[in-house]
């Protein structure tokens, strides 16, 4: 079965999220096939995080539907939590616990978890097993978060702003970890062009809560007659990806 013929792992249709006066997400539809690594690219405030939070079942859509491997993240919450691994953009862990203790804690939440040794080795934190979360560097915290997102052997993984704030070396290490996820369906939310271009087979460009364009990085560059994905983004959205706007 090729990726083009693989069944849909994520099927989000016409998602809308309104907050009083503001519409954060305005009719986004995304379909991601099993085994695919799919990027969601947009400036800050474009609606990326709100979209994936609706997909993950953290925010109820004002309109629209989400299915993860055929399951509704709100009505089938318990089942979805077993098959979904999520790394949130900003989320802290029990700061006084060591990496090993955190991994063991999160392992206990799943029926068939990875063993703790494997989880830490996967993100190259074996030597930091006894180090408390509060004493880790930003990159190490991020890698531990990824390990915890993968600890339950999820079939679908959502990674939000995976490498924000990491130095180039740490970013490459995290990318290698993501590239090793060949069995899972991955949604990668980012505003880093190089990251998306390297890791994702298909990308949705999001602006002002809408999908502006969708396709492989090559297809998007062709569509915009651009040399780089960043140029394509500017051409298709009229915005610089580095523009600092309000948060999602």
């Amino acid at each position: 079965m090729t990726q083009q013929t693989a069944p849909l792992a994520i099927d989000a249709q016409h998602l809308v999220k309104r907050y009083r006066q503001k519409t954060a997400v305005d009719g986004i539809s995304l379909q991601v096939r099993a085994g695919e690594t799919f990027g969601i690219l947009g400036t800050n405030g474009a609606g990326k995080t709100t979209t994936v939070e609706m997909i993950a079942g953290l925010r109820r859509p004002s309109e629209g539907t989400v299915r993860i491997l055929g399951l509704d993240p709100f009505t089938d919450r318990a089942q979805v939590r077993q098959i979904l691994g999520v790394q949130l953009q900003e989320a802290y862990l029990h700061g006084s616990l060591s990496c090993w203790e955190l991994v063991e804690l999160y392992r206990s939440f799943y029926p068939d978890p990875l063993d703790a040794q494997t989880a830490l080795a996967m993100v190259e934190l074996t030597e930091k097993a006894k180090t408390r979360f509060d004493d880790l560097s930003g990159g190490q915290m991020q890698r531990l978060s990824i390990a915890l997102a993968l600890i339950g052997r999820p079939e679908v993984v959502i990674l939000d702003e995976l490498t924000t704030g990491l130095d180039p070396k740490a970013r490459r290490r995290v990318w290698s970890t993501i590239e090793s996820l060949t069995e899972q369906t991955v949604i990668l939310v980012s505003h880093a062009m190089d990251e998306v271009e390297r890791l994702c087979g298909r990308v949705a460009l999001i602006d002002q809560g809408r999908v502006i364009a969708q396709g492989s990085p090559e297809h998007l560059k062709e569509q915009a007659a651009a040399v780089t994905l960043e140029d394509a983004f500017v051409a298709l959205t009229g915005k610089d990806i580095h523009d600092d706007e309000e948060d999602d």
Partner: peptide, 10 residues
């Protein structure tokens, strides 16, 4: 062709 993997809640 959405995948459907109904399973008991755990």
């Amino acid at each position: 062709e959405t995948a459907d993997i109904r399973r008991p809640a755990w």
